[in-house]
Design a protein around this nucleic acid. Structure first.
Length: 126
RNA sequence: GGUGCAGGCCGGUUUGUCGCUGCUCCCUGCUUUGUCGGGGAGAAGAGGAAAGUCCGGGCAACGCAGAGCGCCAUACUUCCUAACGGGAAGGUGCCUGCUUAGGAAUAGGCAGGCAACAGACAGUGCCACAGAAAAUAUACCGUCCUCGAGCCGGAAAUCGGUACUUGGAUAAGGGUGAAAUGGUGGAGUAAGAGCCCACCGGGUGAGGGGUGACCGUCACCGCAUGGCAAACCUUAUGGGUUGAAAGACCAAAUAGGCUCCGGUCCAAGGGCUGCUCGUCCAAUCCCGGUCAACGGGAAACCGGAGUGGGUAGGUCGUUUGAUCUUUUCUGUGAAGAAAAGGCUAGAUAAAUGACAAACACUUUGAAAAAAGUACAGAACCCGGCUUACAGGCCUGCACAUUUU
RNA sequence: GGUCCGUUCGUCUAGGGGUUAGGACGCAUCCCUUUCACGGAUGAAACACGGGUUCGAUUCCCGUACGGACUA
């Protein structure tokens, strides 16, 4: 039985960690997302941050719409990271498109992203 | 029953699987018995506008002798309200439609809509172009009478006409403008004029009705004095400032602050001089001690302990409130009062979701079916306003049509 | 969440009630030149939108839309 939860502890909300992630993290683009990640081997879980810019989507309803679908897709597919044995990471997903995308489009993109995240940028961290 | 307008109300439903948030209950774990961790169950979980942030208030911190100036806001009246720039009822003016009287202008009635609707003899300012003139009682043109001297007509006259001129009377006319100094008609005159008269308009006063805005009535006055205060302004009324990122509390690591305890300092060196002596400075200073040793105190540094502020982070503020629902009563109404019952989101980079199916509604279509289901997401909380909105329901008015 | 400001030719801007809305760069056409550039002449081109006040609004007032700044 895979763990399909997405509880509070799996969200990234600490200001300090966010700052660190954006300062030191590695990144790549996979439309419609920019992905930033950073190893955090001492943590119990991966932690995720979803961001949708106010400049791209003006209305709060649309921003909620995207965030909810991204979180849902992560929740249902995060077992990919566990199976691959990727060390614990901080992950930021930044939505850069100006258009609304349905769940049908977002889910495959997110799966690709989860497969693309490298296992360890620096093995000596272990 | 249909269409349009106005007002009010509602704003998709059900099931399955997987999740999120806080609450209650149960089970359980422990280096930490906790406002702790894990698991399970239950019931709950976005709006009419949650939006714009245009007003008003609660709440909080800071400030505050009293008064004035300045700044900002508001502006017919009365009322509602915690308060308001909001709302209710009413007044006045304007507009639209219908209707009555009338030949018409116009007047009255009904219905609806709109109004930043205090003040323009407190002051300052502006009024382009056009026009004689744009705010000042008056110039110019013009009209009329008259003095004079011409010219023309005429046989002539104290005749007639004509342009000029002296002295007066006027404000009718000047057609331009957004706006022109009461309007229309008559009488009157040399020509004219509220100079006089009728009606309309305006002003003043008295008395009456109304809480009041204001409305009738009567009398008098022939009555020059524009518009713009969403120009400055005047008057009246109100406003202390800043906003939950307010504010209160708990508080790690690191660095630094303060307090206490312990320890460390023993003449190396430099200047004056050619050199020595001497002398001065000096590795901190002060006191006791002739000096030195030594002792005490302070400072500095090192180590340790404690402590206040305070950062990350957390808790409160924070959801029981000018609260909601129902009924009754008061009031034209906004609204108020009483009784009974209810607890109805509390997140914190931010939950209220995702997927699937069925139903409902709308449009297209003969049907099958297809497409669509708005505007939009709480962020301390309320009262309003404004703006957006698929579709549906109710009430009133108007219109045409159908049936009886 | 709160506070404040702006919107004028394609771009940067002036004008803050009065009738042709000005300038610079750019653009188009013509002249100059063997040609291009420079220079000269001419022209096209704008008051965000909807109401209101006023005789008259780009200007004043209200609302809407869009854009921007500040604030931990």
């Amino acid at each position: 039985m895979t763990d399909c939860t997405f509880s509070k502890r799996e969200r990234l909300h600490s200001k300090k960690l966010i700052k660190e992630l954006f300062a030191k993290g590695s990144s790549f683009f996979l439309y419609p997302f920019k992905v930033i990640y950073l190893n955090q081997p001492n943590d119990a879980t991966h932690r995720l941050l979803v961001s949708v810019s106010k400049k791209k989507l003006r209305r709060a309803v649309d921003r909620n719409y995207i965030k909810r679908r991204v979180k849902e897709a992560y929740r249902l597919n995060k077992y990919v990271l566990e199976e691959r044995g990727v060390p614990k990471k901080l992950i930021a997903l930044i939505y850069v498109s100006q258009d609304l995308m349905g769940y049908r489009e977002i889910e495959p993109k997110l799966k690709k992203i989860l497969h693309k995240i490298p296992e360890a940028k620096n093995p000596t961290n272990e």
